[in-house]
Structures are given as C-alpha cells and as structure tokens.
Computed example of a mutant assay.
Amino acid sequence: MFADIADYDKSIVLDIRYATTNNFTGKQVYPAARCLLRRDVAMRLLKVQEKLRGMGYRLIVFDCYRPLSVQKAFWAILPDERYVADPAEGSRHNRGAAVDVSLADSTGKPLAMPTEYDDFSEKASRSWKGSSAEAQGNAMLLETVMTAEGFIPFPSEWWHFDASGWEIYPVSDFPLEKTGGCGDD
C-alpha cells in the first residue's frame, strides 16, 4: 500500500522536479507533484522530518515513487546504472522504497549541498570532497538523520536514499495522478 506524504505532513517541501521541466530530461514527466511511498517507508520519512524540525530544518523531496514506464524513458536517455536503474530489474523508486531528498532551513529555503539535484557527475558522489565545507556538512547531516531511520545512502548521488527492506516490494507502474492513484500492491 502506498501513502502520499503530503497527507501526513505539509511542512515537507515538495520540489518534485519531474513534475516540472527543471530536470535532466528538460520535460515535464509527471502530471502531478506528489510523493508516494510505501506506507512504512513514508512513516520513516516522517520521523526524519520530525527530527529535522526539532533541529530547525525541513526536508525537501525531489522524487519518490516513479512508474516503471518513466524508468524506461529515463534509461533510454541515460543508460548508466550509477544514476538510472536498469528498468529490466526495476528501481527502488519503482517499488516506492526510495527517496531523493535535500535540506532546507525552517522557512523552506534550500541549504547548500555538494551539487544541484540530478548532477550526473563525480561531484554528486558521496565520496567527492571538492564541495564547500558547508555543503559537505549539510550533506552529512542529511545522511546521518536518514540512516538513523533505516535509509541506505546511494554512493553516486548524495540525494538518493533507499529504504532498508526495499527488495520485498514489487515493481509498480501505476501513473502518478493529480489525486488518488496510490496503487494497491
């Protein structure tokens, strides 16, 4: 079962890039800016937001559930498993068990991070040390809070986190509707 994160916490900043043209495809891919996740994954993300709120921060969410049909389109553009999962296997996003996130201050203003979202270069990797101390510190804070709630950092993208246990969920391909459409598997 999927849950829409906005139904639980309106303070999470939804910057769902694939519902805009501000993404690596240059096209609007999703019809709506929604963050759907498996219910238990959503509950973990809410705990992250609660911890961050207590520290004076907020989560920014760039991507959550991604239909398999979209994964296929992304793979056609960028067939590189460091950044896009092979749709033949399905991604953790296709299972509703991965999130692309960043940090904002309490007003929702984005904090400095190592790169922009969807930067498909070595600078986006967790091992890159060439960004500012502020950006590195913010990325480390995000990683610390996410891993404390059972999210696993993805090595080549500072923003990507998989929920532990992601492999129990089947790949889904229902469309991201403007309302409803939370899938039933």
Rank of each mutant, 00 (worst) to 15 (best):
E116L: 13
F154N: 08
P67V: 08
S172D: 14
I77N: 08
Y8C: 00
A133Y: 15
W159Y: 14
W166G: 00
R53H: 08
D118L: 05
D119A: 13
A33T: 04
A3M: 11
G183Q: 01
G130S: 11
A73H: 05
A19S: 10
N138A: 10
Q49E: 11
V99N: 02
A97D: 02
P31M: 00
P170L: 09
S127E: 08
P114R: 12
T107L: 04
D9H: 15
G90I: 10
T20L: 13
R66T: 13
L103Y: 14
G180V: 08
D119L: 07
L111R: 05
A33V: 15
L142H: 03
F120A: 14
Y30A: 00
R82Y: 07
N23H: 05
K10H: 13
G150Q: 00
P114W: 13
E167T: 08
I5Y: 03
G26L: 12
D86K: 05
F62C: 09
Y57E: 05
P31N: 02
F2N: 05
P170K: 07
R34P: 03
D119Q: 03
L142K: 06
R34T: 09
E143L: 00
R66K: 15
F74P: 06
K51L: 13
K109D: 01
P110R: 04
F74I: 05
S132C: 10
E50K: 10
S131Q: 06
E50N: 14
L68E: 04
T107E: 01
S164I: 11
V13R: 11
E134H: 11
Y117C: 01
S127G: 01
N23S: 09
A112M: 06
T144M: 03
C35N: 01
V13E: 13
T144N: 06
L176R: 04
W75V: 07
K51H: 14
R82V: 00
A73V: 14
P31T: 02
W158K: 05
R17T: 15
L37G: 15
D162C: 12
Q71N: 15
K109I: 12
Y83T: 07
H160G: 14
R53A: 15
L52V: 09
V61W: 10
R44W: 12
A163H: 07
M55K: 10
S156C: 04
V61Y: 06
R66L: 12
S106Q: 00
A76G: 14
L14R: 14
D40H: 12
M140S: 12
A104L: 09
D7S: 15
G181Y: 06
W128Q: 00
V171Q: 07
H93Y: 00
P175E: 00
K10I: 02
Q71S: 15
P79S: 09
Q28A: 10
L142T: 04
I168S: 06
M1C: 06
M140L: 13
V171T: 01
F174I: 04
T144P: 06
T115D: 11
C182N: 10
D105Q: 12
A33H: 10
C182A: 03
G150N: 03
G56Y: 14
I5H: 01
L68F: 02
Y65I: 10
S11G: 01
P175D: 14
G96W: 11
S156Y: 15
T21D: 07
E89V: 01
K109H: 13
D184E: 11
E81Q: 06
